[in-house]
Design a binder for these strands. Structure first.
Lengths: 327, 327
DNA sequence: TGGTTTTAGGTAATCGTTTACCTAACAATT
DNA sequence: AATTGTTAGGTAAACGATTACCTAAAACCA
């Protein structure tokens, strides 16, 4: 790989001049040498070494994205939003999956820090330690989709009102006439709002929250299967609110395999609106989170904070209950 | 962020010694100073600056992954495989979506190169320029899932036998009694093997390939919808082979919305076996590509080439026809 | 005791940029 | 003519590591 010094030599000038031209600090550079340099750069297909530059200016134009699992269909859309926003600003993004392991989360963060990323976007693990480890270093962070309690000026937040959304989803079930409504979701150490929203709607309607109708594990299809089986064996429900669409997929499969019909026997609603939800049969009623936009806005916020010093803020995104055939 | 020099100062030694300790070149270092340094590192939570190191040793322990679109469900699984393999070797991976735009592909490559990634994993765009642009720089590459004609020692390859797989999928349709079989897939400039496999099976069985039964556009749900509509309006088929599962999803939706039933009226087979295919109703018969493994093996091959000089090779992965309800 | 090895660690150049400050030449001003 | 300003560009010290080579003391050996 050819270096700036070699380009300079080829042009018979110093590398400082080349640097100035490349970076547009060319107030005091003649048009002639400017042209020569540009031409030489083209000729040798020179591209500046970003890591050398990064070391010098302490900006790598890279952000990190730490997330539980890119192969969980909710995240790729966020990721795409992040990517697009980053790319349009000349930033690259490096991804780290944590598999919901707080230890891996921390080591990923260290890795990114050692690589001098300019900021990181975070979707935290379900069960996690305090956020302080991440605040002590002075790296801008924006947390998306998860709640985190801090007023640190170095962290931005971006989420939908999950409590309300869950409540709304459950209310919808009630409005459709369901009276015995189950919940299957993730066991969440620190932010149980999907469950709380569900409870709130039930109580509001004068319905009891029954432990036997609630199953909590993780956000997987498997959980949907197992949860649904458990709930049904505790007495047939007429509706079920699932913590995410993956769970709903499992729940629906279980319902079918037990010979019941959706929505006549049981109504099902999910959460996220992953792209496939509309293609299920019956198509899944679910709460839409604007995943792409969340990623896009998160990256935009982070990058404009990095490049322009715009303060990080808290953004509440709009959700929407998408009613389809499953209810 | 604290530097190595500061750690050295704190310990009253030179930074060279610290460096040696960190990198395990500590043959000639006393146990006492070793312990002191380690302890000081812990105390200040020091983590070496990877970009400075990268600049010096010309290895960043980072690989790039260039792919069409992370939000297309086939890719996250590959990505996860790449991630896991990389992570286990202490490598990070930075992602670039190209949106199937060859220009964006090239700029992504330049970006990665300027960041001194140690290698890149490639899933090329559907229509693309020559590969020579990528070979002229001396960066190890492994191409996954797409075919590329080169014997350059700097490129590894990893794919399934798509031609055979497509042929097998189509033969399966024929074996199920289909005689008027459609194809809907991507218009592919350089590697039309899914279509060719389809043709091959038809010819073998003495069936004619009819243009009116073939629709080519891109790998999207939309294409499935439009393609199916076009084929049906040209005369009802009794089977259809779809270039990927996304297309199959669209095709199935279209078939249903036109009032036909799968598999009684039409049988459908897809390609990829994205995780949702088994949850469609009817569950989709499809060719399984071992996406996670492909990503994992690709990254492993690339990284062991980078770190140990293992030669890059060509790996053919096993596919499998997964027969489900749609046929 | 003198010489050789070994041990423990230091020196300083280097990786490829950026940038604060310098300079030399010329032009303009007084 | 002396001063000042402007233009075009150069110098060299960073940035934070690594590493080839050096050195000084101690250990060993005959």
């Amino acid at each position: 790989m050819i270096t700036m010094k070699e380009i300079a030599q080829e042009c018979g000038i110093s590398s400082a001049t080349v640097s100035k031209i490349i970076n547009g600090n060319d107030e005091h550079i003649s048009e002639a040498t400017r042209a020569l340099v540009l031409q030489t750069i083209k000729k040798y297909n020179y591209v500046p070494n970003a890591v050398a530059k990064g070391l010098k200016v302490k900006r790598t134009n890279t952000i990190g994205f730490i997330l539980p699992d890119i192969s969980n269909p909710f995240f790729p859309e966020i990721a795409r939003g992040v990517e697009d926003a980053a790319e349009s600003c000349g930033f690259a993004v490096t991804f780290c999956d944590t598999d919901n392991d707080p230890k891996r989360e921390l080591t990923s963060f260290q890795l990114l820090r050692s690589k001098m990323v300019d900021g990181v976007i975070f979707t935290r693990t379900l069960r996690h330690s305090s956020f302080d480890d991440y605040l002590s270093v002075n790296l801008p962070i924006v947390v998306v989709d998860r709640r985190v309690e801090t007023t640190n000026r170095n962290v931005g937040k971006l989420f939908v009102d999950t409590f309300h959304a869950s409540r709304q989803a459950t209310e919808h079930l009630i409005a459709r006439g369901c009276r015995r409504i189950g919940f299957v979701g993730a066991a969440n150490d620190y932010d149980d709002v999907r469950y709380l929203g569900y409870c709130s709607a039930l109580e509001e309607a004068g319905l009891r929250v029954e432990d036997a109708l609630c199953y909590k594990s993780d956000y997987s299809v498997e959980t949907g299967h197992r949860g649904m089986k458990a709930i049904i064996s505790a007495g047939m429900p007429d509706g079920v609110f699932c913590g995410n669409d993956l769970i709903a997929v499992g729940a629906m499969a279980e319902i079918h395999s037990m010979g019941f019909t959706i929505p006549t026997d049981v109504r099902v609603v999910g959460f996220d609106d992953i792209y496939l939800s509309r293609y299920l049969r019956p198509a899944l009623t679910t709460v839409r989170q604007p995943a792409y936009d969340m990623g896009f806005e998160a990256a935009k916020m982070l990058i404009s904070h990095i490049t322009e010093g715009t303060p990080l803020c808290t953004l509440k995104m709009k959700h929407e209950l998408i009613i389809r055939e499953s209810t």
